[in-house]
């Protein structure tokens, strides 16, 4: 009888729904909510984690030049990388869309490869290309009688290389999103536009871009979040060097917290990402909801 009652109790829809979501809720709680609050707690401790120091860690960071450098670098890195990813993704999507449908699959598959390989591994491959002693790129430059480039050891080139690899990894995501958006634009809009008198560029500006506006903005916002929080590329290529000039929030937090052993300070660094990401996520979610309502 008791088991029977349990089944009746379970049969109500909201309860069933809750239990079906429970594994995910537990996972989010363990891997996101708990660490988040724990890092807030950590950030208020002293280095030895023995004493509550309030906001002292944050105030300390404000006084550090390196910290402000990291802030600037993270913003610069995210904006430049996302801009080029979006641009290249758009051009590539357009080019593929112009191909006859037979060839499209092949190109789409090949161009997706950078995005599918785990970035830590592919970045290692790039590191070999950049690597000072046996750099394949420099070997090529030498053959062309151009001076070798200190890819990872000079601030400008190190930043350049990191952004380059990030674009290489991330552009296919834009490509695939834009391609889907392009395919959803009805062909007869372009036909109507050609009869209305639009040339190629006018069709691009008056038809294609406005029709893709939503996808473009969501993809860019999403990519800013992912790029802003990037860790592996910098970690593998430069470890933040030379002299901290390629650190991002995530790698700097790792350096301060794990490598230098000041976990509370590292937690404080990583918490600075939170407001930026929270605002962006909020905008995305609102955007998605608005689009859903429109449909």
């Amino acid at each position: 009888m008791k088991i029977n009652n349990l089944f009746v109790w379970l049969k109500q829809k909201p309860r069933i729904a809750f239990f079906m979501c429970l594994p995910l809720i537990l996972m989010v709680a363990c891997l996101i909510i708990y660490p988040f609050f724990y890092s807030i707690f950590l950030a208020t401790l002293n280095k030895a984690e023995t004493k509550f120091v309030g906001l002292a860690n944050f105030l300390f960071l404000f006084k550090r030049e390196t910290f402000w450098l990291v802030v600037q670098q993270s913003i610069f890195f995210a904006l430049v990388a996302v801009f080029f990813k979006a641009l290249i993704g758009f051009i590539a999507a357009h080019s593929i869309n112009e191909l006859p449908s037979k060839g499209q699959r092949k190109w789409r598959g090949m161009l997706l490869i950078p995005w599918v390989i785990p970035p830590a591994l592919s970045t290692l491959g790039w590191w070999w290309l950049f690597e000072p002693t046996y750099s394949a790129l420099n070997w090529l430059l030498e053959k062309l009688s151009v001076d070798a480039i200190p890819w990872l050891s000079e601030t400008f080139w190190a930043r350049f290389s990191i952004i380059l690899v990030n674009i290489w990894v991330g552009a296919p995501f834009f490509l695939i999103m834009y391609l889907a958006a392009l395919k959803s634009i009805p062909e007869d809009l372009y036909e109507a536009a050609s009869i209305d008198g639009a040339n190629y560029w006018q069709k691009l500006f008056f038809i294609t871009l406005p029709m893709m506006k939503n996808i473009i903005s969501i993809t860019i916002l999403f990519s800013i979040i992912v790029t802003f929080a990037n860790f592996d590329i910098v970690r593998v290529l430069t470890r933040g060097g030379p002299i901290d000039t390629t650190h991002l929030f995530a790698t700097y937090a790792f350096r301060v917290g794990i490598e230098s052993g000041d976990i509370p300070l590292g937690a404080a660094v990583s918490l600075f990402m939170f407001p930026v990401l929270a605002v962006l996520s909020f905008i995305i979610l609102r955007n998605v909801r608005k689009r859903t309502n429109e449909v």
Partner: peptide
């Protein structure tokens, strides 16, 4: 001669109105 220079206008089955305008 491209469509735009033929001085014609066309009405499509799907209407083909620009949805964002």
């Amino acid at each position: 001669i491209p469509p735009k220079d033929r001085d014609i206008a066309m009405v499509f089955q799907s209407y083909a109105l620009y949805p964002h305008m």
